[in-house]
Nucleic acid binder design. Structure first.
Length: 515
RNA sequence: GGGGGUGUAGCUCAGGUGGUUAGAGCGCCGGUCUCAUAAACUGGAAGGCGUGGGUUCGAGCCCCACCGCCCCCA
């Protein structure tokens, strides 16, 4: 069985999970579930990035020790992922002893194989005591830190370990050009190639004044032991998650797919591959950068009040509906928009009216006209159109053209619409009035259940719980979770015993109030 | 300031290599039907294709400039 090691970015532990985090986890979860149903041996890892001065400061501001603080944040993320039905196999945290040892092992391995890659150098910059960090020009107005305008920025010089990233520019260019699937979508690939054109600068690998960090495994020539800087701490999580450097980590590395946000593409396709290559380790097969969700056309902003309560959104119509609508509305290869209004519209038209009502009317007719048992009958010609859409679904979902999850949903939505159309045109309620049309009625009813079963299977990665419920309603003998896609083409629904229950997706009772 | 994207009906988006009256879904307006969650099916209205130039017999698709928005870097 082919293995499929899939990761998302690890989330920075200085606040609660928000819509952006959710989009990435849901998208990756859909991919993980799809690949399992496609028969792959999936290992799906998510986690937390818990080091850094910002975390230590936020903890201190709340009167907490950093570890206790990140423990709490990690709990909150985990609770959210559970509520959303994320099916991760592993949840990694960068403050665990194994990860810290793995980071140090990776750094030592690079230093052994490429002794020239780490070197000491002085770094000068404007340091803000309030932030306990060096500030970039963008964060400085009138010579003051924008966050601490009452304080004076100090020009500070410190010695750090640097990593010779510049040396790897030719390697990276060759790798990215020679492996078109490595950085996706293509727009992101072009962006990185343009960046390589401008040349790479070496990056610092350690910092002083970085107390909440993995100790850098090599002291400076002064004897000082510094903290490992963000790249060398966070990025290796994908590797340490496999058990590196212990055990049979090589059975899982390299990862098949890193799912990340477009803002951190550079770290994942420049810095991370350079580190791995320096260590003599294979590179991940693909990095996929998704876009951003905006809220009602505006970007997130706590100060401007542009935010959305994730739990409120999940509770509105349930986790499955939220997952579906979010991925339906936000293309996974670009930016998208989310609003309460849109959420409600999509839920009502796609889920309540189209799919939910289709299931409802089909099951009701099988009960009414055939005592709840799906009759034996051949498939009508009308189903032929579905085959093209099933193909389109897989083409969108299997990664061969990128991870176009929104296109996958569209392909199923077309099948649902076709089934409603078919129902209208064949008018089973008319056939039922005429005993000589019994065979024709059998064909229609069996076809409807078969179409529903197909759609259910295809939508299962998006809405695992609702689809399992629908699967039971249809009276399928096997469990949906155990079913694989290759069983779909030969699906036999004859004899299934349907049961009409409460509406799968009840129509909204009251308009959603943006609170 | 540099780089990568993006701007097409009220909303979200499709529109290989430029070529007759620019498409879809949702929403909206009208019609049909009754199995169904007042759902479904069907017909229709609706677009200066960001702005201004240019290339071409002909541009939403090519070139230049400018404007708005997203991301990265400085």
């Amino acid at each position: 069985m082919s293995r499929f090691y899939l990761t998302t970015a690890i989330d920075y532990a200085n606040g609660d999970p928000h819509l952006g985090h959710a989009l990435e986890k849901i998208g990756a979860d859909v991919i993980a579930r799809y690949q399992r149903a496609a028969g792959l041996d999936v290992h799906f890892m998510i986690g937390m990035d818990e080091h850094g001065q910002k975390v230590a400061q936020t903890a201190a501001a709340q009167g907490s020790e950093p570890q206790a603080f990140t423990d709490r944040i990690a709990e909150r993320f985990l609770a959210t992922w559970e509520k959303l039905g994320i099916s991760h196999d592993q949840f990694i945290r960068t403050t665990t002893p194994h990860h810290k040892a793995g980071v140090q092992a990776l750094i030592r391995r690079i230093a052994e194989r490429q002794p020239d890659d780490f070197y000491e150098q002085s770094y000068r910059g404007l340091y803000c005591v309030g932030c306990e960090a060096f500030k970039q020009p963008a964060d400085i107005v009138d010579g003051r830190c924008v966050l601490h305008p009452t304080r004076t920025l100090e020009e500070v010089e410190e010695r750090n370990w640097f990593f010779r990233l510049s040396k790897y520019a030719p390697f990276l260019r060759a790798h990215i050009e020679g492996n078109p699937q490595f950085v996706q979508p293509i727009s992101r690939r072009n962006e990185i190639l343009g960046l390589l054109d401008q040349g790479l600068e070496d990056i610092s690998a350690s910092r002083s004044r970085l107390s909440w960090a993995v100790p850098f495994p090599m002291p400076l020539s002064t004897g000082e032991v510094q903290g490992t800087y963000v790249w060398f701490d966070a990025l290796p999580n994908y590797l340490t998650g496999t058990g590196f450097p212990d055990g049979d980590w090589e059975s899982r590395w390299p990862a098949q797919l890193h799912i990340i946000g477009k803002d951190i593409t550079r770290f994942h396709v420049v810095i991370w591959p350079a580190m791995l290559h320096a260590a003599g380790l294979p590179l991940p097969e693909q990095v996929w950068a998704h876009g951003f969700v905006q809220l009602g056309g505006e970007r997130f902003s706590k100060s401007a009040g542009v935010k959305l309560d994730l739990h409120e959104a999940i509770d509105r119509f349930g986790a499955d509906a939220f997952r579906y609508v979010l991925l339906r509305e936000v293309p996974f290869d670009g930016d998208g928009n989310f609003s309460w209004e849109r959420f409600e519209e999509r839920y009502t038209s796609d889920l309540a009216n189209a799919l939910g009502n289709l299931a409802s009317r089909a099951v009701a007719m099988v009960e009414k006209y055939r005592g709840g048992v799906v009759p034996v009958a051949a498939a009508p010609d009308d189903e032929a159109g579905d085959h093209d859409d099933v193909r389109a679904y897989h083409a969108a979902m299997n990664g061969s053209r990128g991870w176009l999850l929104h296109d996958g949903i569209s392909a199923v939505a077309r099948q649902v619409a076709r089934a409603n159309e078919f129902t209208q045109q064949s008018a089973p309620w008319q056939l039922a009035k005429d005993a000589t049309q019994a065979d024709a009625l059998d064909v229609v009813l069996a076809s409807l259940i078969r179409r529903l079963a197909r759609c259910t299977m295809q939508l299962a990665p998006f809405m695992p719980n609702k689809c399992a419920q629908l699967w039971r309603t249809l009276g399928a003998p096997s469990s949906l979770a155990a079913l694989q896609f290759d069983a779909l083409s030969s699906l036999d629904v004859a004899g299934w015993r349907v049961t009409k229950g409460d509406p799968l997706f009840p129509r909204p009772v009251a308009p959603a109030e943006p609170s």
